[in-house]
Design a protein around this nucleic acid. Structure first.
Length: 430
RNA sequence: GCAGAGAUGGCGGAGUGGUCGAACGCGCACGACUCGAAAUCGUGUUACGUAGGAAUACGUACGGGGGUUCGAAUCCCUCUCUCUGCGCCA
């Protein structure tokens, strides 16, 4: 959600931004927002004046009653009632205008960064930096599920019986590797100065509707029956929800947090679940990083954050690249975003393992996350950023494909060994 | 889960239908005093919205939502949370 003042002062800039994102159908929204804003303000002015009258009349009635002038008081009551009828009318009208304005403002995309490549959709995303050599294996790399099965690390049949498609049992060394990666990632982020946090895995509906749109909610969130609670789709939901409506002290910023949580997703609107595999599933675990900072620092943190993910993968000897999101592929709330992609030796291409976004003040404005600017003494909206540290099921695919050896064993890089009881490899099951 | 008590500014805490954005205290900011500080004294100090260049004015907000009333921090309904006791549980 952008600042309405920006539309008032420079509507052309907002329109240009919409064009850059190839959302031409949204261009009329700018004028609609201006109209609604003007109407809402006019209504507020009349409403305020009427309310001032109401307050004045109420006081008058009070003193008349005290003075025993009953008739005059009754007369004033009638006038006050008429006034109140008009107030109710204004409130209805301005409520409508307000609600529509909110919808319109929510659909107008955040202003994107100057250096975001212009492009229509994800096919026009741009490769950024590349880390480690994306090598070919001298043997054929099987599908990740086949590797998992050969290692005795997965049981999908049972999961389908107990929970349906989109769930898995991880077993033995693979389950251990899964936990090892999360634990290593947690320690990695703590070493970078982030504060570790385990958030609630369920949140109330008001928080859900704060952190996402209605469509997203329908497509992603599982609701708990009979309760006003939803399973989180990512810890970002409860981590950002934590600061809804809060005013932070400037000295507290930047808040650099890393959170662990299981993530639950319906995956309704997306490309669907894969029948074979663990690329897209209903339940997975994720280590996330969140930064809430002053506006002037968000560019700095964005760069730092995606590089942390890269550094983590490189330390596990997995080749990755940065893929810069083009304007058309950027969600409306985002100022700038990039994916970290891992190399798949089987497919001979990169695939997404994490996503880093700078939302500037768009999310903070929507959720009322402010901080007190010590210099100006004013409360201003903070900037929020989020990034995946690592989401193990998906990273496991990259891990297995890259570290598989010709003899069927899987190499464990040194950084993970202390979390794996010193093991240097996982052997195939006989 | 049941019963009772409660939720007021950055904090503590008054206030049970009008004169309450809210006493008083703490904190904080500025000033005086001081070589400097402490103490003391004085002044100021909620947020959001609208109008205005600004000073300021008006409106809204006393956990959230709804209601009664000319008028609600105060009365009613409802939700959430906290505390105490009982129950239950890892």
């Amino acid at each position: 959600m952008i600042d309405i003042n920006l539309i008032r002062e420079d509507p052309e800039r907002v329109r240009e931004n919409i064009r850059k994102k190839f959302q031409h159908h949204k261009l009329p929204l700018v004028d609609e927002a201006l109209e609604l804003d003007a109407r809402r303000r006019a209504l507020q002015q009349e409403g305020d004046a009427r309310r001032a009258d109401r307050n004045r009349l109420a006081k008058e009635i009070g003193s008349l009653m005290k003075a025993g002038k009953r008739e005059e008081a009754e007369e004033a009551k009638v006038r006050s009632k008429e006034n109140n009828d008009r107030i109710a009318e204004i409130e209805r009208e301005s409520g409508e205008a307000e609600a529509r304005l909110k919808t319109v403002m929510a659909s107008i995309p955040n202003i994107i960064a100057d250096d975001v490549p212009i492009g229509k959709d994800d096919s026009q995303n741009v490769q950024g930096e590349v880390f480690l050599e994306a090598a070919k294996k001298p043997f054929e790399v099987p599908y990740h599920l086949d590797i998992l099965e050969s290692l005795g690390g997965i049981d999908l049949d049972s999961a389908r019986r107990t929970s349906g498609n989109g769930f898995y049992y991880l077993t033995g060394d693979i389950a251990r590797l899964h936990s090892a990666v999360l634990t290593y990632a947690r320690d990695f982020m703590i070493d970078k100065g982030f504060t570790y946090c385990i958030p609630p895995f369920m949140i109330r509906s008001d928080v859900v509707s704060g952190v996402m749109s209605f469509e997203e909610m329908e497509g992603m969130m599982y609701k708990i029956e009979g309760e006003d609670l939803y399973l989180i789709g990512t810890s970002e939901h409860s981590m950002i929800g934590r600061f809804m409506g809060q005013t932070l002290r400037e000295g507290e910023l930047p808040l650099t947090l890393t959170s662990y949580s299981p993530c639950f997703r319906k995956e309704k609107g997306s490309h669907g679940l894969e029948e074979r595999g663990i690329y897209r599933i209903h339940q997975f675990e994720k280590q996330e990083m969140i930064v809430i900072c002053k506006p002037e620092e968000s560019d700095y943190w964005y760069e730092k954050m995606w590089r942390y993910t890269v550094e983590l993968f490189v330390s596990m000897e997995i080749p990755v690249r940065q893929l810069i999101c083009c304007s058309g592929d950027l969600a409306d709330l985002k100022y700038k975003s990039c994916d970290v992609e891992a190399w798949s030796p089987r497919q001979q291409k990169y695939f997404e393992v994490g996503s880093c976004s700078n939302l500037t003040d768009a999310q903070a404005r929507r959720l009322g996350i402010r901080y007190k600017n010590e210099k100006t003494g004013k409360n201003e909206f903070a900037h929020t950023l989020n990034n995946t540290v690592v989401a193990p099921p998906r990273m496991l695919i990259a891990f297995l494909e890259n570290h598989l050896r010709e003899d069927g064993s899987v190499y464990i890089p040194p950084v993970l060994r202390k979390y794996m009881g010193g093991k240097e490899k996982i052997e195939p099951k006989k």
